[in-house]
């Protein structure tokens, strides 16, 4: 199994719903709490596992705005794991989820240095490394209703721009979406083989115009009454 997420850049409106859903689920989840430093003061700064950034592509007037959520890509070649000296970071063999064992992390930051995607954040209170767990504690929790065994961010996304599934299964929702919409990995040149993929914005919908004879200019007089019963 190769579990991961697909994010649809065509429909993400940058609402931060997924980021906060992630924060609230995981603050009491396997890796919680996700602490917040100076929460009511200057420059509040806490640990998040998912953040939304917005970019403008191209110069105006041709430019386009793109919202881009970023969380752990559960890379196949995850250097964050290999660099970890304590063995706290690891990639699960059975499903490819990259996790941090909170009991073992020494807070050296090295894994965050090795991660190109900014997916790892040090907890300011606990001193351990936090990252997306792919909500391992939801997707495998059989006590949850079947349809809720999905990552918190996927469940909450109001534009349904986030898909979750098994990339090893060619018929899974994620595999199909990536195939049909040319899903892409970010920074492929670094060779991390990220599992998560991004669906690029679709081509613009095109609508025909009503065919009219533009040389004719209607006047009030040119309208004719039709007999239509109320």
């Amino acid at each position: 199994m190769k579990l991961g997420l697909v994010v649809d850049l065509d429909t993400c409106v940058g609402c931060h719903g997924c980021a906060t859903a992630c924060k609230q689920w995981n603050t009491s989840g396997t890796i919680g709490p996700l602490s917040d430093e100076n929460p009511y003061g200057r420059d509040p700064n806490g640990a998040w596992l998912n953040r939304i950034r917005t970019y403008e592509v191209d110069d105006s007037p041709n430019s386009k705005t793109v919202n881009m959520p970023l969380s752990c890509m559960h890379c196949e070649d995850a250097a964050c794991v290999t660099v970890c000296p304590t063995g706290a970071s690891y990639k699960r063999e059975e499903d490819g989820i990259v996790l941090v064992d909170q009991d073992k992390c020494m807070g050296c930051n090295l894994c965050s240095w090795a991660c190109p995607y900014g997916a790892r954040e040090l907890d300011p209170d606990q001193g351990t490394m936090k990252k997306c767990t792919l909500c391992v504690d939801r997707i495998y929790d059989e006590k949850l209703p079947e349809q809720e065994r999905k990552p918190a961010c996927v469940l909450t996304c109001p534009t349904k721009s986030r898909l979750f599934g098994d990339f090893d299964d060619p018929d899974s929702e994620v595999s199909v979406a990536v195939r049909e919409r040319s899903g892409k990995a970010l920074m492929p040149e670094l060779g991390y083989n990220p599992t998560n993929k991004y669906l690029p914005p679709r081509n613009k919908a095109v609508v025909q115009t009503y065919e009219v004879d533009k040389s004719v200019i209607g006047t009030l007089k040119s309208w004719a009454n039709r007999v239509i019963a109320r």
């Binding site: 000296p85 304590t86 063995g87 706290a88 009991d103 073992k104 992390c105 020494m106 807070g107 050296c108 930051n109 040090l122 907890d123 606990q126 001193g127 351990t128």
Partner: peptide, 11 residues
């Protein structure tokens, strides 16, 4: 430099 030095031995 370690934020959680109690686990340093695991390095």
């Amino acid at each position: 430099h370690l934020a959680n030095p109690k686990n340093a031995w695991r390095a």
